[in-house]
């Protein structure tokens, strides 16, 4: 590893900004978040970033490193610097910029509030019994650390800015976790189609590629949810029944 590297960090706010270069000393195992901390401690205490656990468990330190959406705490510097020792660090692009590497992700929390919570089937005996094989599907989705990297690469949100129409992969995963809970009794198909906009996903799987928890977002969450919606609303027999009965 090089003794020093040059971090080009975006500095600025919603009104604009630019990359600023900082030279930092390296040490074994150094991650990009260490470099940011070194800048804050020794060169510029005003550099803004979010972080908490520094162990890839909280999902706070999301950024775009050399253009790739990553957790800064899980990105070793030697995997990112180029021949000149340069690493570029920018905020995630999909959400409004507050300052430097900090973005306004509050929209995600508003979406979360609108999702119908779990309701355990009435009459289920206590203590609750579930098979390990049945809970594993939900457990995969519950590994999500809400880093919002999937949200920031989702084309619907990033390129088309359709936060009005689609909840994004994070919340498809959340709905899937509820829907695949073995004892849940809530019907969310209509919600999925109308409010959550599951139909907007065109299965490019970009979200799945960036997930630091390796959740199979598209394969295991979104596609099965799309199938459920299709069964309910686009099944020819059900469509006929709906037309005859006048139901929507």
């Amino acid at each position: 590893m090089r003794d020093t590297i040059r971090l080009r960090v975006f500095r600025g706010d919603a009104s604009g900004g630019e990359e600023r270069e900082y030279e930092v000393k390296t040490f074994p195992g150094m991650v990009v978040l260490d470099a940011i901390h070194q800048i804050q401690g020794e060169q510029d205490g005003t550099l803004a970033c979010r972080w908490n656990c520094k162990a890839a468990k909280c999902g706070s330190c999301s950024a775009e490193i050399n253009g790739l959406p990553r957790l800064m705490c899980k990105s070793r510097v030697e995997e990112f610097y180029d021949a000149a020792g340069v690493i570029r660090v920018h905020p995630i692009k999909t959400f409004p910029l507050i300052k430097d590497l900090v973005t306004d992700v509050s929209w995600n929390y508003k979406v979360a509030e609108s999702i119908p919570p779990l309701r355990i089937r009435e009459g289920t005996p206590r203590p609750l019994r579930m098979d390990q094989s049945d809970v594993e599907r939900a457990q995969e989705f519950r590994k999500c650390i809400e880093c919002f990297l999937c949200q920031t690469v989702c084309h619907v949100l990033r390129d088309h800015n359709r936060t009005d129409a689609y909840f994004g992969p994070r919340y498809m995963v959340k709905i899937a976790a509820l829907d695949m809970h073995p004892l849940d009794s809530v019907e969310r198909r209509s919600f999925l189609r109308r409010s959550a906009g599951v139909g907007y996903c065109n299965i490019t799987k970009c979200c799945q590629e960036v997930c630091p928890e390796h959740i199979h977002i598209t394969d295991n969450a979104i596609i099965p949810l799309k199938e459920r919606v299709a069964d309910e609303f686009y099944d020819p027999i059900r469509m006929l029944v709906r037309r005859l009965s006048g139901r929507k």
């Binding site: 706010d13 804050q40 510029d44 205490g45 005003t46 550099l47 803004a48 970033c49 507050i98 300052k99 430097d100 900090v102």
Partner: peptide
């Protein structure tokens, strides 16, 4: 002493 202003300023 902390440089900068009050906007998201970790040093402050």
């Amino acid at each position: 002493s902390a440089a900068g202003d009050r906007r998201y300023n970790p040093g402050w």
